[in-house]
Design a protein around this nucleic acid. Structure first.
Lengths: 160, 160
DNA sequence: TATAAAACCTACTAAATTAGTATGGATTAT
DNA sequence: ATAATCCATACTAATTTAGTAGGTTTTATA
């Protein structure tokens, strides 16, 4: 279990999808503008998310990405595991056979901790976030057609 | 809250100190040998840990590092915060004033998540790990004089 | 008191990861 | 046909992680 800005980008992008789930697909250009992440980098992240079945892409105009399954079934762990590579954290995987005895003891303890952390984040689903009162406000403000049209004239700050 | 191999090194090194707490100070050379981390890198990490009061150094022969406070009072969060720099994760700190409205909403949600994670890891102390049955076995095996002498003739693999 | 073990300190370099750029193709609504 | 969008690959830049090198200071102990 690793947690870096890369994972944060993926999680916040997925939150975005969850928030607008009923408004139809969200384009990466939107997320890029809204969250200040480069478009191509997002594409790389979403390639992974797609491979893991967490999102599905819709091609062509009006397309974008939408969640690959209900937000209740997508956990924070799922997202992080999808984008961060495996990390193979100790060689011996906590089997404590990598250097007989003490050397591996701390690896074993670390693996226990890592496992607890994973389970903790696995217990938090995307669905929890869209229940946030702030989210409901935003979400209500944008009916699907309005947001669709708005998406066609994005603010275009400077994020390519 | 960030979680990288750097944080892992610090946590496992601290576990080492906690395990051998009653055996007198543990040298960085030992940890370097046992865990395969370079000595100088450990020195850098321990400089931080010392600044945070999590460890105290004992100079001279027979010296090393020991815990700066009881293992019950040192949480995993404490350790990670000490070594990983702040990460200033979103500019606006979840105040949602960094770009009026939606842009910041996901930041806000991320901060909530980050906070929950922090609290989770803050609830796990070093003391919990040394209760592990494997640990007690190792710990019992090494009385203080034996380990002291052993430390003077380290295995010296290749870690400088 | 000389010696060596260790912490402590600083500057530099190497490796890995994260992030971004560039370019083009494939699909599809309009 | 056009343009919006996903999709894919290759490359570069920036940042972080990790290690190297060279010291100094402190201190137990022979």
């Amino acid at each position: 279990m690793k947690l870096s800005t890369k994972g944060r980008y993926a999680v916040t992008a997925m939150m975005d999808l969850a928030i607008h789930d009923r408004d139809g697909p969200v384009t990466l250009a939107d997320i890029s503008n809204c969250q200040g992440i480069s478009l191509s980098y997002l594409e790389q992240l979403f390639a992974r998310l797609r491979q893991s079945g967490l999102v599905e892409g819709v091609r062509g105009p009006g397309g974008g990405y939408r969640l690959g399954k209900p937000s209740q079934q997508i956990s924070v762990s799922d997202i992080i595991v999808a984008v961060d590579e495996s990390i193979d954290n100790t060689r011996c995987k906590g089997n404590k056979d990598c250097n007989k005895g003490e050397k591996c003891l701390t690896h074993h303890l670390w693996n226990d901790l890592s496992e607890r952390l994973y389970e903790f984040l696995d217990g938090i689903s995307l669905a929890e976030f869209i229940k946030d009162p702030e989210v409901r406000k935003i979400s209500r403000r944008q009916d699907s057609t309005a947001s669709r049209i708005a998406n066609m004239f994005p603010p275009r700050s400077k994020a390519s």
